[in-house]
Simulated assay, not measured.
Amino acid sequence: METLFWSCLAGGILFAVVSVVLGDLVSHALDGLLDFLSVDFLKPMVIASAVTVFGGAGILLTHYTSWSNAAVVLISAVLAIVIAALVFFFYVKPMNNSENSTAYSIRELSGRIGEVTIPIPESGFGEVMIKLGAGNTVHIASSLERCVLAAGTRIVVVDVHDGVLRVTKLDEKRGDVV
């Protein structure tokens, strides 16, 4: 029985080390192969913590108590389930809920104010920079009214057509479009 406990402890520790070092590589290599097993509480961290606690508790209970093997296995399993539940509810679930995305859709840029970085000719394309979140993003743009917009001109995005921002000059005095 002690061999089982040592194997679980070593396997859990090995899984933790491998997942830290090679986690992304294995994830990309499998490319969603095991997604059908995806149950909310069967996360690798939860399973690894349960296996590791089962092995560690089994070793400790075998060495420091005179309980029977059945009692040691039962108590180790209960401890593993309790610790796995704690890991899930106090670490995994809050971390999943806190994930934020910095992604945006180009369609969300309508109405945003920006600045021309590469001049926009009457019937051609230039480039505009728009502040988005904590950073800036640059996009190809064309003039909605087909007028020249020089570099440094403040603009507002009116529309997006085929990935190109359609912009117009912003009236600095009134704060709206010309």
Rank of each mutant, 00 (worst) to 15 (best):
F15E: 10
V157C: 12
S123A: 14
V26S: 12
A141E: 13
V128F: 08
L25Y: 14
V160G: 04
A77C: 08
S49D: 08
A150S: 13
G126C: 06
H28R: 14
A134S: 09
S123M: 03
R146H: 12
R112D: 06
L74E: 12
V156I: 15
S123F: 12
T3S: 08
V26D: 13
G11Q: 03
V17S: 09
F15A: 14
I113H: 12
P119Y: 12
T137M: 05
Y104F: 15
E122P: 02
T117A: 03
G126A: 04
L86S: 03
V82S: 10
T153S: 15
S38D: 07
E172F: 01
P121N: 12
S49C: 11
F125H: 05
L144S: 04
K43E: 03
L22F: 15
I118F: 00
V20D: 02
S38P: 01
T137S: 06
V78H: 00
L30I: 14
A151K: 13
S76K: 13
K131D: 07
I47F: 00
K43W: 02
I75Q: 08
G56Y: 02
W6H: 10
A85F: 13
I83V: 15
V51Q: 02
A57Y: 01
L165E: 06
I75A: 10
L14A: 15
L25V: 12
V20P: 06
M129E: 11
A151P: 06
E108F: 03
F5R: 04
G58F: 02
A85P: 02
R154S: 03
I130V: 05
A150N: 13
I120L: 06
A141Y: 14
V178C: 00
D159M: 03
A50T: 07
S19F: 11
T137F: 08
E145Y: 10
G12T: 09
A150C: 11
G163P: 06
G152Q: 09
S110A: 12
I113R: 13
A71S: 10
P119K: 11
L79I: 13
W67C: 02
M95F: 09
A80F: 05
A141R: 11
I83T: 07
